[in-house]
């Protein structure tokens, strides 16, 4: 008995540092980014994943995106077509968020400046156009009045759905490129704010990277940008505290909050 216990203990002691080392490797924000040749290169189609929550989270996410795509300042204007494929993640039963995402896509995709039109003439051969989007539903991590006891079960269901949706698009690669031009791969970027679904989806992405599933970690996929709610002035939210050392970028929207030296906190101006 004692022998088995010692062996188990030794094994744990030996493998734990290796696992932790692996974790630090994949969780450091300085992990490798893929080299990209142009924003709309057909060989490197980009994939952006956006997580919407209910009520305030959705409102803030869309306010932030709307501000970015309609910005009068060309340096700050987000060109929606730079992201060939967009995946919107919503919680089950949240038809309002789905409606908002659809409205945004219909508004943002046709926005094009003179500069884009000019660029279109020159770079037509390498421009893959506006691409498309999809809205994916995942089960709720926790219903509003659900008892805490069953929360792990529903969270696990949500985690499994998140893993599935992250794996929905993967490609074989050739020299670091998609094997087929225009083929959608893992998300390049995950953009989220604080709903519970976001925490679970980010966890799912970390698990995939931990095991380097289909080379997602080697290829620098699924970089994560977390934007703390604008309503958080003095204290971080629970999701924020959980994710502050896990995401690649952790942005807060009030300068006084950035003074809290937590994880990767940074203040780059108000974003909504």
């Amino acid at each position: 008995m004692a022998f088995i216990l010692t062996t188990l203990l030794l094994l744990t002691l030996l493998t734990l540092p290796a696992l932790l080392y692996r974790l630090t490797l994949i969780l450091t924000p300085s992990r490798n980014k893929p080299l990209r040749h142009g924003r709309r290169n057909p060989n490197e189609p980009t994939h952006l994943l956006i997580i919407l929550g209910s009520g305030g989270h959705t409102a803030e996410m869309l306010a932030m995106l709307t501000r970015a795509v309609t910005s009068p300042d060309p340096a700050q204007k987000l060109n929606w077509k730079d992201y060939h494929h967009r995946t919107w993640v919503i919680s089950e039963g949240d038809s309002i968020s789905a409606e908002r995402a659809k409205e945004f896509e219909e508004m943002a995709t046709p926005l094009s400046t003179q500069e884009d039109l000019m660029a279109g003439k020159v770079k037509r051969a390498t421009d893959i156009g506006p691409g498309g989007y999809e809205i994916v539903t995942v089960p709720r991590a926790r219903e509003i009045h659900q008892p805490l006891l069953t929360a792990p079960v529903s969270s696990f269901k949500c985690l499994r759905a998140c893993r599935e949706l992250l794996m929905k698009h993967t490609t074989d690669t050739r020299d670091g490129h998609a094997a087929m031009a225009g083929e959608v791969d893992f998300p390049d970027l995950i953009l989220c704010n604080g709903p519970a679904t976001a925490t679970i989806l980010v966890l799912a992405s970390v698990l995939l990277r931990f095991f380097d599933v289909r080379g997602c970690s080697t290829r620098g996929k699924m970089r994560t940008v977390y934007v703390e709610s604008w309503a958080r002035v003095k204290r971080l939210s629970l999701s924020g505290r959980l994710l502050s050392r896990v995401v690649d970028r952790f942005l807060v929207q009030w300068p006084q909050l950035a003074k809290e030296a937590v994880g990767r906190i940074e203040y780059r101006g108000v974003l909504v």
């Binding site: 980014k33 893929p34 080299l35 990209r36 040749h37 142009g38 924003r39 980009t46 952006l48 932030m64 995106l65 501000r67 970015a68 910005s71 300042d73 340096a75 700050q76 204007k77 987000l78 060109n79 730079d82 390049d188 970027l189 953009l191 620098g220 970089r223 940008v225 934007v227 690649d248 970028r249 942005l251 780059r268 101006g269 974003l271």
Partner: peptide
């Protein structure tokens, strides 16, 4: 802005 942050993360050249 948001665009700057996303660009940094995407590594657009």
């Amino acid at each position: 802005g948001l665009r700057g942050i996303l660009d940094e993360e995407m590594g657009f050249l």
